Simulated assay, not measured.
Amino acid sequence: MTAISDRTAAGDAAVAPTGPLRWQDGHWGRGRLLPSPEEQPVAIVIDGMSQAVLMATPHDLRDFAVGFALTEGLIASLDEITGFEEMPVEVQGLPAVEARLWLKPGHAARLAERRRSMVGPVGCGLCGVDSIEAALPQILPVTSNWIMTAGDVGRAMAAMASGQVRRAETPAIHGAGFWDGETALVREDVGRHNALDKLSGALARQGIDATRGAIVMSSRLSVDLVQKAARIGAPILIGASAPTALALAWAEAAGMTLIARARADGFDLYTHPGRIPGSPQD
């Protein structure tokens, strides 16, 4: 434990005065010194049973726990929850947190089926799932007919980006936003899956209908993000980077509109174009 602390302190001291080395336009220089995002082990504990341990940014943990429970299928609705408790703990001298949810009697049957207890890398979306069946659950159809214009895609990305207050301090953080046609509700985390779980929890806790808007991600789009968005009924999923092949297949089968490589001036539309009026296949 001492060796880790010494190494970390030495590394911070070495970088702190001038910032990191940077290769830019064929030349070496010094990059800007930016704060590093905070990261801690966060255990999602439901009715006293650990469901997952993820490396996460330790804020909005109630949203994280609620959203994780919803998007992983551990609860069906917010009314199944009777309480929440955030308990700081220490593991081998390092800070950690238990985000504890308590359910109404009779609602804990799903927990044994989906229990996950291994520590995963940052925002690992499927870490600890112990079978192919658990990793590839039944496809949930997305039925919302909510639409957005092609111009709204760039506006949604801009609204999500402007809502990333922590990214303004350090670029090493992901954002997930919900665009309702006018504004974006945003949550952030070092893990993209964590950011979406936090957003899902925030939507549920604020009584916002996820079927009446688009999920906007600052990241690539993997199948687990599609699965999570489908579980809350989001009709459109937008990402700043590329989708995986399985994400595309899942979105197509679920009836979800998937948009990737989205920027202010353009995007790639992959599945179910009918929700973007005027698109060639509309």
Rank of each mutant, 00 (worst) to 15 (best):
M1T: 09
M1Q: 11
A3Y: 10
A3E: 12
I4M: 10
T8P: 04
A9Y: 05
A10D: 12
A16C: 02
G19K: 05
P20R: 01
R22N: 15
Q24V: 14
H27F: 06
G31C: 05
G31I: 01
L33W: 08
L33Y: 12
P35S: 04
P35G: 03
P37H: 07
Q40L: 09
V45G: 09
A56G: 01
D60V: 00
R62D: 09
D63W: 03
G67P: 07
G67R: 03
G67I: 01
A69C: 04
A69S: 11
A69F: 01
A69W: 01
G73F: 03
I75S: 02
I75W: 01
I75Y: 02
A76N: 13
L78G: 00
L78S: 01
D79C: 08
E80Q: 13
G83Q: 08
G83H: 05
E90S: 07
V91L: 13
G93A: 04
L94M: 15
P95Y: 04
A96F: 15
V97M: 10
E98H: 11
W102S: 12
L103W: 05
G106D: 06
H107S: 12
A109T: 07
L111S: 13
E113L: 15
M118Q: 07
M118N: 04
G120D: 08
G120K: 06
V122S: 05
V122N: 06
L126A: 11
G128S: 09
G128P: 00
G128F: 06
V129H: 04
V129F: 11
S131H: 05
I132H: 03
A134Y: 08
L136Y: 14
Q138V: 09
I139M: 03
I139R: 08
L140S: 10
L140F: 07
V142L: 04
N145E: 05
I147K: 15
G151P: 09
V153F: 00
R155M: 11
M157Y: 08
A158H: 07
A159I: 13
A159K: 01
A161R: 12
V165Q: 12
R166K: 15
R167P: 00
R167C: 01
R167F: 00
E169V: 12
T170M: 11
I173Q: 02
W179G: 04
L185Y: 12
L185N: 10
R187V: 07
E188G: 11
V190H: 13
A195P: 14
D197M: 11
K198Y: 10
A202H: 09
L203M: 05
R205V: 08
G213D: 10
A214E: 01
S218F: 02
S219N: 13
S222F: 05
V226K: 02
V226N: 06
K228Y: 02
A229D: 01
A229H: 00
A229L: 07
A230F: 05
A230G: 14
I232L: 06
I232P: 02
P235E: 04
I236F: 03
I236L: 05
L237N: 03
G239Y: 03
A240R: 06
A242T: 15
P243C: 09
P243A: 14
A245K: 05
A245N: 07
L248E: 14
W250H: 14
W250T: 15
E252T: 14
A253V: 07
A253K: 07
R261I: 10
R263D: 11
A264R: 12
A264P: 02
G266M: 06
F267W: 08
R275V: 04
I276C: 02
G278W: 10
S279C: 06
D282E: 14
